[in-house]
Simulated assay, not measured.
Amino acid sequence: MKVVTFGEIMLRLSPLGYGRFVQSNKFDVTYGGSEANVALSLANYGIAVDFVSKVPDNEIGQSAINLLRQYGVGIKNIIKDGERLGIYYLEKGASQRPSKVIYDRKYSSISKSTFDDFDWDSIFKSADWFHISGITPALSESLAEISKFACKKAKEQGLRISCDLNYRSKLWTPEEANKVMSEIIKYVDVCIANEEDIEKVFGIKAEDSDVNKGKINYQSYSNVAKQVHEKYGCKYVACTLRTSISASDNKWKSLIYDGNKVIQSKEYLIHLVDRVGGGDSFSAGLIYGFMNNLTLEETLEFATAASCLKQTIEGDYNLVTVNEVNNLAKGNTSGRVQR
């Protein structure tokens, strides 16, 4: 079993602790990016995974590759070319102060990619699953076309395809996202979204819900998942549902629709350490469940528990074991010291 993910890995710079940008003269350094985060989670679960990307041929690009290699992610399809690695700055929020992200990723190596950079026939050889997010095609017009082509090739070669819509307002408009993602979604088996993505990308709104006020109507999101399934033909539509009590405390659950029924996970109350990568760890958990032939209920609970645990870990990556995820999914929520 092998998974291929395609996207950008970036340098992440964060003030120490809960410091603000304007008061910081030191930054914590790590690397991350949606599809890279998914790849690392899967490698951590023992699944063979290749990450496809493009980084500059310098020490910063090599550092990103080294990080992926350290955790067992396949890096043979990462091209070294171009001038810069994308950067994002993260200021972690607390209580009523929200987190903030500033992007510095224009003209990054991967955004300048061309069709000649990627031999998809070779990349998909012996692969079983392809994962992409809506961030990758948002980076440039060329990447939008490459992303469509990659999904088409993956479908032709019989791979299952998952896509996290991952709408980013700082990268493109809803109209631009709709135009591109309406093409990509035709190839997707598992569509993944948070409580806002589907409205922003496809214009399908959950009634009686307001995420800014922490109001989530679960039945409405079940209806949204059904509409996506009916309109675009995805075999599964999964949604993470975050109720934001504050920047420090969230409720977290999810649902999935398979064309016949909607299944909801249990709900977790999380005291956040680092919420970045929560959706990516959910995607990885779904892929893990499907590839290991878990039941749909088991798959959803595994993915939800995995993404809950991620949000208690600093950095983009979900550094937990399968056993730790299963223990939480089975109800061990006390957080007691394990001796």
Rank of each mutant, 00 (worst) to 15 (best):
V3Y: 08
V4S: 09
G7F: 04
E8N: 05
G32Y: 07
V38N: 06
V38F: 09
S41A: 14
Y45D: 01
G46T: 00
A48P: 00
V55Y: 14
P56M: 05
G74L: 12
I78V: 09
I79D: 11
K80I: 06
L90F: 15
G93D: 03
G93V: 04
K100C: 07
Y103K: 11
S108D: 10
F115W: 14
F124P: 00
W129R: 08
W129C: 11
I135S: 10
E141H: 11
S142T: 08
L143F: 10
F149A: 13
C151V: 05
A154M: 08
Q157T: 05
R160L: 14
L165W: 13
K170P: 10
L171S: 05
P174Y: 10
K179Y: 14
S182R: 13
K186M: 07
V188F: 07
N194Q: 06
E195V: 11
V201Y: 12
V201E: 09
G203P: 06
D210K: 08
D210M: 07
N212C: 00
K215G: 00
Y218M: 01
N223H: 11
G233E: 03
K235I: 08
A238C: 08
R242Q: 02
S246N: 07
A247V: 01
N260G: 04
H271T: 02
G278V: 03
F282M: 05
G289A: 03
E298K: 13
T299D: 00
A306Q: 11
K310T: 02
E314W: 15
N318Q: 06
N332M: 12
S334H: 05
G335H: 09
Q338E: 07
Q338P: 01
